[in-house]
Design a binder for these strands. Structure first.
Length: 903
RNA sequence: GCGGGGUUAGCUCAGUUGGUAGAGCAACUCGUUUACACCGAGUGGGUCGGCGGUUCGAAUCCGUCACUCCGCACCA
């Protein structure tokens, strides 16, 4: 048989340098990362002829630091990219950061406060300078951390959402959408953050359950003095803004009151009682106080009934009500209590109940938002229909698929996007007003193209000429209004030509609306194409108790500490192994420890190989163990390819683990150890070394995307590739040219059958030894009745694996009564006990075996005895069951004979 | 309320068209034989959340209930 093994010999471990006993990742990782960068391995070449594969990184906040979610997501992307390179693709992984408007501005403002000043004092221009300084100072951190993780991004193409060319595109897009009428301005009820002093989009508001109170108060009826209307509210602090009271028109209790008036206690006013379908008669008293300025639903009721709008809140959440000096200027939550007390004092508070409701919180600032009417810029989303279609029809594939539903549901109920923010850090709205008309235009709703045509306003990426005649809009845009262009605005034309649309996007499901949906719409609108083909939604990393990781809980480990303690490869692998598709992953440091242990296992297996030295002399024919491990490697390669095609990263990780630790180390390496003894056959030794080298070579390749540093280090130490060839650059064999090594299926099947029989027998003998407390005894003697002559040929290996001194083959052996025996597919194996024979123990043991077999047998007989099974089941299933039954029967006969001999 | 997950060994989780329930960790018993104690050998441990249905056969498909998590919309 001719083995198709590359080259006449195996590796020649360079210089036979001693490998350290344990793998030490620290230095190895840093030096390899440097070498990859120097060799240009990460560069995505837009002029390449190879098929393109591209990913844009979900840009982290520029001043952020790496957390476990980043580690998970970026490891996934790195695996995809490294694997794609191995598959012969031209890969671009485009990195960059996001300016993160509110988050960054908040941090800098915080710093200013510590310095005893504020952004208003400093002024817009100076403040922005300070933010840029902050960005330059803190901006590189997360990028450096990604490098420590081993991410193979094309750093020469690193982008920032506030880069000059990127910004220009953001402004251009705004302008285009304005001219198309998609961007408009209007006075609307928006989510207002009293801490950041800006409007927010609906997506930036988190509805959070709150333990609050339901206040039952009473308003006197104007037309019927002495009669009161009971009203329940959670927000007595806004009652000064009440301009109506609403009941359901069908509610029999209140029908007679419609059209009459209630008296607002303070500031005292008579407000109309209106009928509105929106009111739920079941809730509270069935009467709602209507505060159109501070509640979305109330606002709409107000519009329907033409109620007055009275704003009783300042932007910072303090009360604005000069008519009530005792409340004016105080914080909203303080006023809640004060107003309740005041009502109570007036005898208008009936009762207070504990009540749990959901309150919108600002995602960033963590304070309750206020619904507030203000003048803002809005976007009527473009391409909603096509964005629905491309996902519904699978042009863009979501994985796991169920996120599709979430996405489509959001699109169905889509609301216009409030894109203006009352911040300074970000892309400033590119709209200028003529100075003399500025005041008027600022208040003008529906600022449309007509103003443009009349020359009143200027909208465009460039400032107008004669800037002194113009005044620019003060707002900036929502950060996501720049992020949604990320897949293409980060690329120049030539790069887009090669790499756009991108191949895969990997991100968390928490930003499916914020980012993914919007990118799809932007891609369709501005490039007339989908921005990516696949979206992989990864798990959310939680702590071991299932809580979300957060700074305040202190349950979020610093990935850099983990890298320092276990190595980046261990972190990557440990996380991948437990990251299920779409389920949350509960993180435990133990998992990283396992990653480290595995890295060390691979390291030591290689160390063992290296200790054997170069392949010398003419290799002999491959034996059954060689054929078996090579065909297992081949099977690994196929299963891995399938798993990665399906983005089953954890499955792939598990396959890699199982093959190496169990099949290769625990079985194969143990089976071939005899080949390296001084008295071993040189041809066999050479052959085994050669096979080991093939396994290492291919395995390191397959493992590389998961543990890039370790594998690259070993690849070099074992001199696997061609001179100077990096593992990272080495292509996998093309499809079909697998690791079969030209071994026939027949040979594989035969080897497989024999190896399975041997391994099973070895397990049983070890088991017997353990039961008879002989596990440590290497002097045992085994006597076998083999099933065929081939068994005898494997004597040496069986001896080694069983930990025995001697094996005697004898078809006619008659064991002394009570000799422990194992019945296997290879032989009847007797373990003669010198001296002490515990007859009762052996009887009991064999009885146990018999009862196990009988159980299987009766199950099998039951199935086959059922004519419906035989009729209906697939023929191969029936056939398999018959074979099984036969095996059980043989085994039972054998065991019963042995048992009989004991009595 | 609407939608989507989850419930399998003490723990964390696999289980791909229905066909003998698995892994790692933990526990326990052995063991340092020339890779590795970040190791090796072995053992114990599960009515696959409950009930019902389809089927020769269900962890797997359907229905229903329970508990739990996550979105979305909410009643002040």
């Amino acid at each position: 048989m001719a083995l198709e093994i590359r080259g006449p010999v195996g590796f020649s471990p360079r210089g036979m340098a001693e490998l350290s006993k344990a793998y030490e990742p620290g230095e190895v990782e840093e030096s390899w990362y440097r070498r990859w960068v120097e060799a240009g391995c990460f560069r995505g070449d837009e002029r390449s002829d190879k098929p393109a594969y591209s990913i844009v990184i979900p840009p982290p906040n520029v001043t952020g630091i790496l957390h476990m979610g980043h580690v998970l997501n970026n490891t996934l992307q790195d695996i995809l990219c490294r694997r794609a390179r191995q598959e012969g693709k031209e890969v671009l992984w485009l990195p960059g950061t996001d300016h993160a408007g509110i988050a960054t501005q908040t941090k800098v403002e915080q710093k200013l406060r510590e310095e005893g000043t504020t952004r208003r004092e400093v002024g817009r221009e100076k403040f922005l300078e300070k933010v840029w300084e902050w960005k330059d100072h803190h901006g590189g951190i997360i990028i450096e951390q990604l490098k420590r993780l081993g991410c193979s991004c094309d750093w020469e193409r690193e982008r920032f959402t506030m880069d000059a060319d990127y910004s220009r595109e953001v402004l251009r897009v705004f302008t285009e959408l304005f001219k198309k009428g998609h961007v408009y301005r209007g006075k609307r009820m928006v989510n207002w953050c009293p801490a950041s002093l800006t409007a927010l989009s609906d997506e930036e508001v988190l509805m959070t359950p709150q333990a609050s109170k339901l206040y039952y108060m009473k308003y006197e009826l104007v037309e019927e003095p002495g009669t009161f209307l009971q009203i329940a509210t959670t927000r007595p602090e806004t009652l000064m803004g009440d301009t109506g009271v609403a009941v359901n028109p069908k509610d029999p209790r209140y029908g007679h009151l419609i059209g009459k008036h209630a008296r607002r206690p303070f500031p005292e006013a008579d407000i109309p009682i209106v009928a509105d379908e929106h009111i739920d008669p079941e809730f509270g008293t069935g009467v709602l106080k209507v505060t159109p300025a501070h509640d979305k639903a109330d606002f709409e009721i107000g519009v329907r009934h033409d109620l007055e709008i009275i704003d009783v809140l300042h932007p910072d959440g303090t009360i604005n009500c000069p008519a009530c000096p005792d409340l004016d200027g105080k914080d909203r939550f303080e006023v809640r209590k004060l107003a309740a007390a005041k009502l109570d004092a007036m005898g208008l508070l009936e009762k207070v109940e504990d009540y749990e409701n959901k309150v919108g919180f600002s995602e960033r600032a963590g304070v309750p938002i206020e619904p507030r009417i203000s003048m803002q810029w809005f976007l009527k989303y473009p391409q909603v229909e096509r964005a629905t279609e491309v996902v519904a029809k699978g042009e863009i594939v979501f994985r796991p698929e169920r996120w599709k539903k979430t996405y489509l549901h959001w699109l169905e109920n889509i609301q216009d996007w409030c894109i203006s923010r009352q911040l300074w850090w970000g892309h400033r709205i590119p709209v200028w007003y003529r100075k003399e008309k500025a005041a008027e235009l600022r208040e003008a709703e529906n600022l449309d193209v007509s103003h443009l045509e009349q020359g009143d306003i200027h909208v465009g990426s460039e400032a107008p000429e004669n800037p002194e005649e113009w005044e620019q809009d003060g707002d900036v845009m929502d950060t996501w209004f720049s992020s949604w262009l990320w897949p293409y605005a980060t690329m120049d034309d030539a790069t887009q030509e090669k790499f756009y649309p991108t191949s895969d996007l990997s991100t968390g499901p928490d930003i499916i609306f914020f980012w993914v949906a919007r990118m799809i719409m932007a891609g369709l609108e501005f490039k007339n194409e989908i921005p990516f083909e696949n979206v992989y939604f990864h798990s959310i990393v939680r702590d071991i108790e299932g809580r979300k990781m957060s700074k305040s809980l202190g349950n979020s480990p610093d990935p850099l500490d983990l890298i320092a303690n276990y190595g980046a490869d261990a972190l990557r692998y440990g996380l991948m192994r437990i990251a299920p598709t779409g389920l949350d992953v509960k993180f435990d440091e133990k998992q990283i420890e396992e990653g480290r242990n595995f890295a060390n296992k691979i390291w030591n297996a290689c160390r063992y190989r290296q200790m054997q030295g170069a392949v010398e002399g003419e290799p002999g024919e491959p034996n059954i163990f060689a054929i078996d491990i090579l065909s297992k490697l081949e099977s690994l390669e196929q299963r891995l390819a399938r798993a990665l095609t399906n983005y089953a990263f954890n499955d792939a990780a598990q396959q890699l683990y199982q093959f190496f630790w169990s099949e290769f180390c625990d079985w194969y390496l143990e089976a071939v150890k005899g080949d390296f003894r001084d008295d071993a056959d040189p041809g066999r030794r050479a052959s085994t070394l050669q096979v080991m080298d093939r396994v290492f070579e291919r395995y390191l390749q397959l493992m590389h995307p998961y543990m890039p540093h370790l594998t690259e280090e070993i690849w070099e130490k074992l001199a696997c590739g061609d001179e100077g060839e990096l593992l990272m650059q080495r292509a996998l064999p093309t499809e079909g040219a697998s690791v079969g090594f030209g071994i026939s299926d027949l040979a594989k099947a035969e080897a497989r059958e024999r190896v399975v029989a041997i391994y099973e027998s070895v397990s049983q003998v070890r088991n017997l030894k353990a039961e008879y407390n002989l596990a440590a005894n290497r002097n045992v003697r085994l006597i076998m009745k083999p099933v065929g002559p081939w068994v005898e040929a494997e004597r040496a290996t069986i001896l080694l694996l069983c930990g025995a001194k001697e094996i005697e083959f004898s078809a006619s052996y008659e064991a002394p009564k009570g000799t422990p025996v194992a019945v296997t597919a290879m032989a009847e194996v007797h373990l003669p006990l010198e001296g002490l024979v515990d007859l009762e123990a052996e009887k009991k043991r064999i009885d146990g075996e018999i009862s196990k077999v009988q159980k299987e047998l009766s199950r099998s007989e039951g199935m086959l005895g059922n004519p419906k099974f035989v009729e209906n089941a697939k023929p191969e299933v029936v056939q398999k069951e018959r074979e099984r039954l036969e095996e059980w029967r043989e085994k039972l006969t054998q065991l019963e004979e042995l048992r009989g001999a004991l009595s």
